[in-house]
Computed example of a mutant assay.
Amino acid sequence: MTPEERLEALGLTLPEVPKPVAAYVPAVRTGDLVYTSGQVPLVDGKPARTGKLGAELTTEEGAEMARICGLNVLAALKSEVGDLGRIRRIVKVVVFVASDPAFSEQPKVGNGASELFAEVFGEAGKHARSAVGVSALPLDVPVEVEVIAEVA
């Protein structure tokens, strides 16, 4: 199955690439690597949720927001390479989690994106990852995800 076929089998549709909210582009290719800008959980151009993990959102809700970020990452990758089948491997994922100071389940939140990449790309979707708690993110969103991917 191609990545697009896997998305369809999961009942998922890639969104339009979210428009940047500042002076950057969604993705940049250099050689055989594509770097995405941090993607936030925008749906139809608006934050799906706002707030901090451990205060306004549960770990499970954060993981769902990370999954939405992951879909936006895939849209950014596709806009740069034209076809997700050209992605050879998801190399590195960085997940930023807007967290209450006592919250420490950032890795579980990051699983929302990581599991999506594994579902879409199989073994090639398994990656190195950092999940970092931060005090705030743009637009007061709870999660932001960026990726480095290798392309054929």
Rank of each mutant, 00 (worst) to 15 (best):
S104G: 12
A102E: 06
A98W: 05
A75D: 04
E4P: 01
G51Q: 00
E144A: 14
K126R: 13
A76P: 12
K126D: 03
E80K: 13
K126G: 01
R29N: 06
A63C: 06
G82K: 07
G11K: 04
N72C: 11
C69R: 02
A66D: 06
E150A: 13
A131D: 14
V73W: 01
V40M: 15
V93M: 05
L74C: 03
G110Q: 02
C69Q: 06
R49F: 04
V81K: 08
E61S: 04
G133S: 14
V134P: 15
S37H: 12
C69S: 08
A102D: 06
V141Q: 05
V134L: 14
A136W: 07
G11L: 00
L139T: 11
F121I: 13
F96Y: 14
T30D: 09
R6M: 14
V93Y: 00
G82Q: 13
K78V: 08
E4F: 12
P26S: 11
L74G: 01
A66F: 05
E61R: 01
E64T: 05
F96M: 02
E80I: 11
P142K: 05
A76D: 09
R6D: 03
P107F: 12
V43H: 11
V151R: 12
S37L: 07
V94F: 02
S104H: 11
Q106R: 05
C69H: 02
A152K: 10
L53Q: 01
E80H: 03
S135Q: 14
G11W: 01
R6C: 03
A75I: 07
V93G: 00
P142S: 08
E64V: 07
E119I: 06
T13P: 01
V73M: 02
V81E: 12
S135Y: 10
A27Q: 07
T58L: 03
V94S: 14
E115S: 09
V151P: 00
D100I: 03
Q39Y: 05
A124P: 01
P47A: 11
K46M: 08
A128Q: 13
G51M: 04
D140Y: 08
E5H: 10
V34E: 01
K92F: 11
K19I: 15
A27P: 02
E119N: 12
P18K: 10
E5V: 14
E16C: 04
L57T: 04
F117K: 01
E56M: 09
F117Q: 02
D83T: 09
I148T: 13
R6F: 08
G51A: 06
V17F: 07
Q39M: 15
T36Y: 02
S37N: 12
E146W: 06
A131Y: 11
F103T: 15
V25K: 09
M1G: 12
E61N: 04
L42Y: 08
E60R: 05
I148Y: 05
A66Q: 07
L10R: 10
R67M: 06
S135N: 14
P142I: 04
E64Q: 10
L10C: 09
A23E: 15
P47L: 06
